[in-house]
Structure formats: C-alpha cells, structure tokens
Design a protein around this nucleic acid. Structure first.
Length: 926
RNA sequence: GGGCGCGUAGCUCAGUGGUAGAGCACUGUGUUGACAUCGCAGGGGUCGCAGGUUCGAACCCUGCCGCGCCCACCA
C-alpha cells in the first residue's frame, strides 16, 4: 500500500543507494548509441551551492532522459583540484593552528592538502548524490589523479614542442596577497574613488618643468620617461630633453609617442614601464628601461626605492604626495572615479609586475574553435552566447599559465646551465629568456625520468644521473638535505621549475582526460566528442573556450557538439548571491524541507533560456505540492485496482474519456520530447505539470470515478487505461522527479526492472479517436459553465438539481448520451433531461452547441441571472464584431493564410450561435 | 568606448505575427472518502514610451526611457 503521506526524505534515502549499488547509472549498453556529458567538475573544496543544484539538475534530466530512450548514457563525474581555492582553504586551516604554509616544506604542505582532500574532498560528491545526480561514480576522476596528471604533462610537452607554450618575461597581473601571477580573466575591474594627482618634473637643464597627471603617484619612483604626443605643438621643443627625478636625481627623457593624449591632463604622461601595461609598450617602443619598484607583496622595494622602501603602496602614495608638495612640485589633486584591478580570489589590488612566466599561444589555439562555431559544428544554446564567445576569442591575449603556488600540477620542466661545448639535439629545447635573463637549458618531459634522461645526455661527462635526481626534488626537501643539495646545486645549477599550472589548464582537458586519454580505448572513442556541455555562461572564457582549444588541438575534434549555457541563480530580489551579502540559499536546506524532486522540478521549470533564475521558496513548495498531488493520485489509483501497465502501447479504448486521455497523454509525451530536443526545460516541465494536474487529476480521474464504480468491461478498460497513463506519467516525469516516480513505479505494480531503466514511451503509437477530444472538450465546457452559473447564482453548494438540455446540436446530443453520471458527480446534476425546462425562473447555461437549463423557480434572483447572461452576451458580441470586421477586410481575405481565414470564420459562426442563444435566453427571462 | 540581455496581471515569469497565459498572492466558497501540501468559482494587464512595416504587432524594424551583465590600457 502506498503510504498516506508523501515523505521525500525516506524515499530519497532508499532509492539513491539502490540505483548506485545496482549499477543503474551506467547500464552496459555496448550496442547503443552513446550519449555523453562530462560534469563541470566542482572544486574539491566546495560544497553544493544553488548554482550546482541548477547545473546538475539540468544535466541529470538530460542523462536520465537519454538513458530512458535507450542510449548508452554516460555522465562523467569528478572534482577539480582548484589550485588557488584549495590552497587558500588549507592555509586557513593551518592558520587556525597557528601555522604558516611557509613554515613547512613544500612536500609537507602538499601532503597536508592531500590529507585534507581525503577527509573532506567528498563533501560535494555526497551532496550531488542527495540531488539525485545519476553520475558514473564507479569511474570518478580528480584533476590531480595519476592518469589525469600524466595527461596534463603530455599536453604541456606537446604544446611546448610545437612552440605553443613558451616562457617570457612580461608584465603580468600580480596578486600581492597570494604572491602569484594570475591571468587576465582572474582580474576584475572595480570602480573606486581615487585621485588624479598633477605634479611637475623639473627639466634637467633647469629651464623649467613639465607637468604630468597620474592616479598612481607612487609609481613615479619607477618612471623612466615622459611621453608627449608628437602632434602636440606645445611640447615639440621639449622632445628629447631630459627631466630629473626629484627624489633620486636620475635623469630620463621626454619622448614622442602617440599614446599620449593631448586632450588629457597636460598632455604629457609619465611612463612606468615596469608597472603599467600601456607604459610597458611605450617603453618598448622608445627604449626606456623597465625599473621594478615593488616587492612581491606590493611594498616598495628595489634599487631606487630610497626612503620609501618597505612602505605599502598606500603609505608610499601619501608620502610621495607630501614630499612633492614639500618640494614645490605638486600642482593640484582632483578627486575622480578610477578603474582599479582586483584579484577575483584575493580581493586585493593587482599590480602589473615584470616577471618570467609561462604562456600559451591562445590566439593560435583559438582558430579551430572559432571555425567550428562558425561552421555550426559547435553550437551554443541559446545561440547568442556565441557572440560572447567570438568577442573574446577574436581579441584573445596570450594565456599566462604559470602560478607561484604549491598546490597544482607542477610544471614539467627542469632547468640547467647551457654548455657551450654541446649543441642540444635531444627533445628538450633551448630557449632564450628575455635579454636580461641568463640563458638556460630547458628539459621538458613527460615525467621525471624523461626529463632526467634528457639532462643526463646533455650533461654527459659533467654530472652523474644520481645528481639530477637529487636536484629534481630539491625544492621538496628540507633541513640537512637541503644544505647538502644546495652545494651540489651550485656545482650544476640544475633545478626544477617551482611553479604550478593554472587550474584551468588541466580542466581544459576534462572532456578527454577523464576518458582515459592518452590511452585510446573504447571509452574514449565512443564518448569523445561529448554530446553536450551544460554550464553557466560565466565560465565560457575560463573553461568552455579552453576546452574547445585543447579539444581541437589535441584530439583534432571539437569536444562537444552543443554548449548549453544556463543563467545564474539569484536571490528573490534578483541580486547575485554571495556569502558576503549573506543572501545565499542552501540547496540542501531546501531538499530537507521540500525534497530533492521539488527542488529539481523548480530548477527545470524556471530554466527559461537566456534569463537568470530568481530563487523563490514558495515556488519550490508549490512543486512539492505537485509531487504530493501525484502521490495522492497514485494512492487513489491503487485503491481502485489500477496498477502498472504491461505494454508500451496504449490499450484499446472504446470509452470516449479513455480515448481522450490517451490522446492527451501522447500529445504531452510529444511536447516533452520537442521541448527537451530544444533544451526548453521550462516547457517540458510545464507540459508535464499541466497534464498531470489539470488534465489527468482534475478531469480524467474525476470523470472516470462513476465508471470505476460500476463493475464491468468499461471499468476494466478504464483501469487498464488509467494504469497505462500513470505509467507514462512516471516515465516522462522521472528525469525531473526521479525519486517519487521510482517509488510509485514499484508501489503500483510488480516490475521487471527499475524505472530508471524503463523505456521512454512512443508517442506515435497508433491512430487516435479524433472525435473524443471534441466530445470531452464539450463536456468539460458544459460542466464548467454549469458550476459557474451555480456559483454566481449562489446555488447552495450541496444542492443537486436537474439539468434540462433545451436545445442541442445532434452532435452535442450524441456526446451527452452517456454523460449523466459524470454530470451528476461533477456538476451536481440530479437528472439529465433532453427537454425544455418547465416554465419559471431558471439558470440558463449557454454554449455554442447547446442551451441547458437548471430550474430555479423561487430561488433565483432574476436580476443577477440577467446581469450574468448580459455580460457573457456582450463579450460574445464584442468578439464577434472584431471577427466580422476582420472578415470584411479585403486585405485579410486576400493576404492572410487560408487557415487563418477559415479559423476566423469558424470562430465567428460559433460566437454568433452563442450570442443568439444568449439573446434568446435573455428574452425568456423577460 | 564596444557588445549582450531585460522591461507582459500585485509578485516571479511563459508567450515571438492572427481575439493576452501559468504559478504564487488576492476575493468568494466547499470537509461529495485520492489529495485542505486540496477542490470549485471569481477579480485583476492601454504587453516601458513613440514612430514605422503589415490586411493584422506583445511579437518584426527604428528611436527614446529605465534596469542588468560582459569586455575594454585614457594616464
């Protein structure tokens, strides 16, 4: 027996472990068409937030749907090591213990992170299970597991050998809190209140001053030039002259460069090549030196820091301004809003800083993905996201992939000194660092042995293999060993690159590295390319585009055919959710309260393309109510001997109402299929919701109650049909609400298999009874009109009254022939009579096809009834008038689609009939 | 500065060329044995504004107003 109350928690706890342990998430279907989704790997540090709930619900709907359709459905799952995020989390834990990362060796720290991962890394995967995500857990991956790491190294080596990865000394975005370079994408520009400081540089020859303006006065310590526009007549005479730095006496030139905007400030701009991206370019063009004045923590440092050494940027700025003023060089200060770069993780001001970093030639790798999107081989849904994609890809900058962190994929590179006497002819290549850096030999290898082999060959006769091995692990060691090794390092200067790769470098390989690449096995060939990627639009640049680059380049094919981008889940007011604002909603709390099915259905129903989702708890509650409704319908079915259906095909139906619900069911199945084919999750959810509640429960179950009450062939047929319909509901609803549907599937009948592995229904199963929909539609309209009349005329709710069919078309008469029991049940009709009502006051129910009358002599308020009929009549007349007008319009008749004209004619005829009946009814009222 | 999107019932949103829809909220009503996490009935919108195209516009085009997001080196 189905329990009286629907308890989501109980059935969730029951079915998920059952599915997982029976291998239902990954049925063995070697002959079926593959369908593949790779999960956007959540950060291993993470816990399930509302965005995950959306993203993974959508993926699970697609996977469960395709699995029901018989595909070899694979949902690859795993987590991302999330370099910066994880390192920050573990550092925070250490901090609580009073330990700093730098108190430990790198190896100790890495061990600590791994330990943390073992202990807490499965939080999010447990939470995904609570959502009902039917991932292939048996093959769960981690971006730093052994196979994945090998894949990362292999890609690095390949790209390096192709010249698509290189090292360069450039300005990078330096995060002084995390003390690492970050990529352009990890920088967010914020508008802050700032100042524009105008001050004067004295000319070296004492002939005057030149005024410059800057929002970063402290960078004047690193100024090595002043630029003016070559077309700016005011400064022509000054170009080539030198200015003297007021604090350290250095002299540097005034140069002509187009970058200087004559309209801005004084038209002269100070140039700090080492701390500003524009100035760096200006400096290169004009041979200005780049002078570093910052330390890694963004305090002032370097040779020319003078009295400012050790000051923070803010303090240095204050002191510089004061000192300029004291020297009489300060011109003026204006307040203004300025754009400042901030690190998206650390939240501190990012400083442009000159360092050696590794880069990927992104522009080159972007070509193939762009071509694929242009050719339609890769499709964004909704389509407009391809514009965002192109906008970025067409202007893409080199991707800085090295990070000065301890947690991540170590860059697979060993450095050593160049040998003048040996030319390098092995895999490792020599490269030239920037001119001010020493040349070094670089050994890039798939693994340590590979790199050491290269080094051993290169240094043949100079050093022994054992030395290399020691040096390779140099930065992992501590204490006494270090001392010993440092000595040897001096002898050979062989060292391992201490940086790690950007986390997104490894996640870019996710679509194939999770499928065991570089091994080529059946899993890889069957499931690459993936079918569809489901993700938030906010990581199109970070992740989607990079997967496309790597997929095309490494695998020679786009990683997925379709990219479905969903919106963000916002709070009820439309604000972006964030921990700092305190407006986050915990999906697990919602699951506890309303069940996973309700939360999932909410996500699907609200997922309209191209729009963010506003969180609405009442709505989640509403979908819990929907689940309860279905639960109760199933209980009703069960108590009436309605069980499951043995067949996929609908049963034979003689009874009109049965034929009708079969047609409605098939129409709904088709609607769901079409919606899902277009990724219209909202339309699919809405089609099922409307069908279950407004068609099946409100009408079919009610209309068939009288039939079920009379034992016989019709009751048997109805039980068959109801059982079949209910089964189809469970199947098509299963992707959206997996738990309740699986529970009811088993509760309603003994089954050969679980619902998760059932077969999706066929919507085009057979020819349908075309008249049934019209008949039931008429019956529904009659019942609604009768109820409405009774309500508006304040007929006591319990009163059972006769209904006279005073006039009716032959068809309507036929439809009504067997309708008496339904009318009795649903409209409180005591007796259905095909005759005029006896004279006297009565409620008149008017449809286009019939006039029905409820005698209400002595009860009815004639004025109310007249008003009611007049209102309906006026509406009909008004609408008929517009239709008449349209049909009188020659343009409409000549140019409109024939169907539209025909439809208008039919409607007008129907409305005219109704209006006439209403007029007659009013005449009878007197 | 460039790009994208949104503005439809009190709220949250569908509808993308042929008489305006859903859920919630609201009003009235109902314990007829599936369901009060419910049933029945009802009120409520000049579809941001102004032009244009069209036989016909919430829907297509143009402009404007308001809101949001992304990208971008004006010191």
């Amino acid at each position: 027996m189905i329990e009286k109350t629907f308890d989501p928690a109980a059935i969730e706890a029951k079915w998920y472990p059952h599915w997982e342990s029976t291998g239902a998430f990954r049925p063995h279907r070697p002959d079926a068409e593959p369908f593949t989704i790779v999960i956007p790997p959540p950060n291993v540090t993470g816990s399930l937030h509302i965005g995950h709930a959306l993203d993974n619900t959508l993926q699970d709907i697609l996977i469960r749907y395709q699995r029901l359709c018989g595909k070899d459905a694979l949902w690859v799952v795993g987590t991302d090591h999330a370099g910066i995020a994880t390192q920050m989390v573990v550092e925070r834990l250490l901090d609580a213990e009073g330990v700093k990362r730098t108190d430990m060796t790198r190896a100790e720290f890495e061990a600590r992170v791994w330990k943390w991962k073992e202990e807490s890394g499965d939080t999010i995967t447990r939470q995904l299970r609570r959502l009902g995500a039917s991932c292939d857990w048996a093959n769960e991956r981690f971006t730093m597991d052994e196979g994945f790491s090998a894949a990362v190294r292999k890609v690095f080596v390949q790209l390096y050998n192709e010249g698509l990865i290189y090292r360069a000394k450039r300005l990078v975005n330096w995060d002084p809190k995390l003390k690492t370079a970050i990529s352009d994408l990890e920088v967010e520009t914020r508008e802050v209140a700032g100042q524009l400081v105008h001050f004067r540089y004295p000319l070296a020859d004492g002939s005057g001053h030149i005024t410059v303006a800057t929002t970063r006065p402290e960078t004047m310590l690193g100024d090595t030039g002043i630029a003016v526009n070559p077309a700016d007549a005011r400064y022509t005479a000054l170009v080539g002259k030198m200015v003297r730095h007021p604090f350290d006496g250095r002299e540097f030139p005034i140069v002509a460069d187009d970058w200087a905007d004559p309209e801005f400030g004084s038209g002269a701009v100070k140039i700090t090549p080492a701390h500003d991206f524009n100035d760096f370019e200006v400096g290169k063009r004009n041979n200005l030196t780049a002078m570093n004045i910052l330390e890694a923590d963004a305090t002032i440092g370097g040779e020319h820091s003078g009295d400012y050494r050790g000051l923070t940027v803010t303090k240095a700025r204050e002191k510089i301004i004061a000192d300029l003023e004291a020297a009489g060089l300060l011109d003026r200060i204006e307040d203004r809003t300025i754009q400042m770069p901030y690190g998206d993780r650390s939240g501190v001001v990012v400083e442009p800083w000159l360092t050696d970093q590794w880069y990927v030639d992104a522009a080159k790798l972007a070509e193939a993905p762009m071509a694929a999107v242009r050719a339609g081989e890769t499709r964004f849904v909704p389509e407009n996201w391809s514009k965002t994609f192109f906008q970025w890809m067409e202007n893409i900058q080199p991707w800085c992939i090295s990070r000065q962190l301890w947690w991540g994929h170590r860059i697979p590179v060993l450095y050593g000194p160049m040998r003048d006497d040996v030319s390098l002819s092995i895999t490792g290549r020599i490269y030239d660092l920037a001119p001010d850096t020493d040349k070094r030999a670089v050994f890039v290898g798939l693994d340590e042995v590979d790199r050491l082999d290269q080094a051993e060959k290169y240094y043949e006769g100079v050093a022994k293999r054992e030395d290399f091995e020691v040096y390779d692990s140099w930065s992992d060691a501590s204490g006494e060993q270090v001392k010993a090794w440092i000595t040897k390092k001096k002898e050979l200067s062989l060292g391992r690159d201490s940086d790690v790769l950007d986390t997104w470098f490894s996640s870019a390989l996710w679509p194939f590295a999770t499928l065991d690449w570089p091994k080529t096995n059946e899993t890889l060939t069957r499931h690459y390319p993936n079918s569809v990627l489901v993700t938030g639009f906010d990581i199109i640049f970070f992740w989607v585009a990079r997967m496309q680059m790597m997929g095309h380049h490494i695998m020679g094919e786009a990683p997925f055919a379709t990219v479905y981008c969903h919106g963000l889940v916002r709070d009820g007011k439309g604000q972006k959710m964030s921990k700092s604002k305190g407006n986050t909603v915990d999906p697990l709390g919602l699951i506890d309260k309303y069940g996973a099915d309700a939360l999932r259905f909410f996500m699907a129903a609200m997922e309209t393309q191209g729009r963010d989702i506003k969180m609405s708890e009442p709505r989640v509650e509403g979908y819990r109510n929907f689940a309860t409704k279905l639960w109760n319908a199933a209980r009703f079915a069960q108590s009436n001997g309605i069980g499951g259906s043995a067949h996929l095909e609908p049963p034979q139906a003689h009874e009109t109402v049965n034929a009708w619900i079969i047609a409605e069911t098939l129409a709904t199945i088709t609607a769901v299929e079409l919606a899902l084919a277009d990724y219209r999750f909202d339309a699919a959810a809405s089609a099922i919701y409307q069908f279950v509640w407004s068609r099946f429960c409100d009408w079919y179950l009610e209309l068939t109650k009288p039939i079920l009450a009379e034992p016989g062939a019709l009751a048997d047929e109805t039980r068959m049909v109801a059982g079949w319909v209910l089964d189809q509901i469970l199947v098509i609803l299963h992707p959206f609400m997996p738990f309740i549907t699986e529970e009811l599937w088993h509760a309603l009948a003994p089954r050969q298999h679980d619902l998760i592995l059932a077969k999706w229904p066929k919507a085009d199963a057979r020819a349908l009874d075309r008249d049934a929909p019209k008949a039931i539609d008429f019956l529904i309209r009659l019942i609604e009109a009768t109820r409405s009349a009774r309500n508006e005329l304040n007929v006591p709710h319990g009163a059972s009254l006769p209904l006279h069919i005073a006039e009716a078309s032959p068809q309507a008469r036929a439809w009504l022939a067997t309708a008496a029991p339904a009318l009795a049940k649903m409209a409180r009709v005591s007796e259905l009579r095909f005759d005029p009502a006896p004279p006297g006051g009565a409620a008149q129910i008017i449809l286009a096809e019939a006039t029905a009358v409820i005698p209400l002599e002595g009860v009815i308020d004639l004025a109310t009834e007249r008003a009611r009929l007049e209102k309906t009549r006026d509406a009909a007349i008004k609408e008929a008038a517009t239709l008449t007008g349209r049909l009188a319009n020659e343009g409409f008749l000549a140019k409109a689609k024939p169907e539209a004209v025909e439809e208008a004619r039919e409607k007008l005829a129907s409305l005219t009939a109704e209006a006439e009946r209403l007029a007659a009814a009013l005449a009878r009222l007197g």
